Amino acid sequence: MKNLLRSFLLLIFGTITMAEDVDLFEASNRVVFEFNQALDENFFEPIARTYKESIPKTMQNRVSDFSSNLNDIYTLGNEILQFKLFDSVSTFGRILVNSTIGLVGLFDVASDIGLEKTNEDFGQTMAVWGVSSGPYVVLPVLGPSTMRDSTGTYVDITENIDVTKELNTTEEVALLLAQAVDTRVKLLPVTVLLKNSDDVYIATRSSYLQKRQFDIFDGNPPIENDDF
């Protein structure tokens, strides 16, 4: 109940912060973007490449599958909030199968038996509830977002803390780092494409907003939508 109340308060905040200009804060966004780029090029990307080249693929898959199983927990909650009953039943089945037969999510058995993975976050949930995206923003370390998705990210992080609260500090940090590295490895191909663009900032912004539109409309975005 406490988390649901917090979510509704953040929904109100997200509604208040709506704006028509897609990149109202471009000047400050570019400053944060440059900071993130430097941090990524000197820290995150080298670690991701070393991980990909040095760690056996089998072990990488276990980390990826475990992270995916945790993500299914957050997805389930958001599917329920979006009244996607069929998807929520399928996701619940994935969690049940992968958490038992899949050894606490280390193996994605659910996909092998036809339980398709979906991804829903609180930013998508707010979009379904009718909250406008608001202006584009770049968050320190976390990267591209919007005012709505920033609020959603806060809720998602809070829920993540609630799910992993049984872990001690060392285990929680290790899990967070493993998830971060796994995510960064998956983004390596995108990094190459973006670096070849004339303006990496604009290319990143465009890619993010298009992907979010794709995600929110479950792969069938309208031809025109002034919100994005």
Score class of each variant (00 low, 15 high):
residue 171 E to N: 03
residue 67 S to N: 15
residue 148 R to M: 01
residue 147 M to L: 15
residue 118 T to W: 00
residue 31 V to H: 07
residue 186 K to A: 15
residue 113 I to K: 01
residue 139 L to P: 01
residue 171 E to C: 01
residue 63 V to Y: 00
residue 3 N to R: 12
residue 63 V to S: 04
residue 74 Y to D: 14
residue 179 Q to S: 14
residue 124 Q to N: 12
residue 53 E to S: 13
residue 200 V to F: 10
residue 155 V to P: 02
residue 120 E to S: 07
residue 178 A to N: 02
residue 101 I to Y: 09
residue 117 K to C: 02
residue 171 E to A: 08
residue 219 G to N: 08
residue 84 K to S: 09
residue 121 D to Y: 05
residue 85 L to A: 13
residue 14 G to Y: 01
residue 12 I to K: 13
residue 217 F to N: 12
residue 172 E to H: 04
residue 200 V to I: 14
residue 189 P to A: 08
residue 170 T to W: 06
residue 53 E to I: 04
residue 216 I to L: 10
residue 124 Q to C: 10
residue 95 I to M: 05
residue 17 T to I: 09
residue 51 Y to A: 14
residue 81 L to C: 06
residue 204 T to N: 09
residue 135 P to Q: 04
residue 36 N to E: 08
residue 186 K to M: 15
residue 108 D to S: 08
residue 212 R to I: 06
residue 209 L to Q: 14
residue 172 E to P: 00
residue 203 A to W: 04
residue 66 F to H: 10
residue 214 F to L: 14
residue 75 T to L: 09
residue 110 A to M: 03
residue 96 L to K: 02
residue 43 F to S: 13
residue 133 S to T: 09
residue 28 S to L: 14
residue 59 M to V: 15
residue 159 E to A: 10
residue 120 E to Y: 07
residue 30 R to P: 00
residue 219 G to E: 08
residue 226 D to W: 07
residue 164 T to M: 15
residue 62 R to D: 04
residue 81 L to I: 05
residue 22 V to G: 04
residue 71 N to Y: 12
residue 143 G to W: 02
residue 9 L to G: 13
residue 192 V to Y: 07
residue 220 N to Y: 03
residue 216 I to R: 02
